[in-house]
């Protein structure tokens, strides 16, 4: 079943100059989809449109067969969660407090957090393996630690679709791999869509890739189908050869001299 379906999407910040020009693809439950493409391809803009921060100018976006314009903000927030590229820690908030903010779309007015909310927070913290950080101040964490907290916050929203904007940017390779492994595990019962700069990392961990350039779709499919010398030439104008990683059997590009 498709949990996210984008059809003929056109959107941007100026109606005369759309950033996303007619993009269609769908994401099934349980998939981890990587969106790749050169700078300015519109990857972040696409995520912002899906999460409702940007108006759809043309076409449609549907989450579990509900068009997003028919859902109110709270209903949308219960189905879709967003992890931005840079999230600020909150001075005076512990990790647990910050993850609890993910429960905002479920909280009732005047009432305090219920057991459901504490359960969801505990579950999200366990999934991200950060229970030992639970009581630490968010301002004291390293970049890699905080990124896991940011993802736990999104997970506490219990979304059907989780969107992440460059979740591995600014992280060392250990955390890049760590975050990708966690995301790959989290995709069961929901779908994960993340933008990446590192094609080889995306190819290694994603179940499918969407390659974009200048607001248009260049290719989509399994990493093997997308990571080809022709596609990479079309998107980035660089010459590469593509080899299979001998141990993982995943496609990876190598720059040609």
């Amino acid at each position: 079943m498709s949990s996210l379906k984008i059809e003929n999407l056109v959107c941007g910040y100026d109606s005369r100059k759309p950033v996303i020009k007619d993009i269609s693809f769908s994401v099934d439950d349980g998939q981890f989809v990587g969106i790749v493409g050169p700078n300015g391809a519109g990857k972040t803009t696409l995520l912002r449109a899906v999460v409702g921060l940007l108006k759809v100018q043309h076409g449609s976006i549907a989450i579990s067969n509900h068009k997003i314009e028919h859902l109110d903000r709270r209903e949308l927030a219960r189905r879709i969660a967003f992890v931005p590229q840079l999230m600020e820690p909150v001075d005076g908030f512990s990790v647990e407090d910050l993850v609890m903010l993910g429960r905002t779309p479920y909280l009732e007015r005047f009432s305090f957090e219920q057991n459901d909310d504490y359960d969801a927070v505990k579950w999200a913290i366990d999934e991200l393996k950060i229970s030992e950080l639970k009581d630490r101040q968010t301002t004291e964490l390293s970049g890699g630690e905080f990124q896991r907290v940011a993802i736990a916050r999104a997970l506490a929203q219990e979304p059907k679709v989780m969107l992440l904007d460059e979740p591995t940017a600014h992280l060392d390779i250990r955390y890049q791999v760590n975050i990708c492994k966690l995301l790959r595990k989290l995709r069961s019962h929901r779908s994960i869509v993340a933008t990446f700069h590192d094609l080889n990392l995306a190819s290694r961990f994603c179940s499918r890739l969407v390659l974009m350039k200048a607001g248009e779709l260049i290719a989509e499919g399994s990493p093997d189908e997308v990571v080809t010398p022709e596609n990479i030439w079309k998107a980035y104008r660089i010459k590469v050869s593509v080899k299979k990683n001998p141990t993982t059997q995943k496609a990876r590009y190598v720059l040609l001299p």
Binding site: G52, L53, A77, A81, F82, E88, L101, T104
Partner: peptide, 24 residues
């Protein structure tokens, strides 16, 4: 003020994040 305390909390993450948490 108390009625909107939930929204004020979400705003601690910034305006856009508050919107993605269902706050108008």
């Amino acid at each position: 003020a108390y009625f909107f305390s939930k929204e004020l909390n979400a705003l601690l993450l910034g305006e856009e994040m508050a919107q993605t948490l269902g706050v108008d």
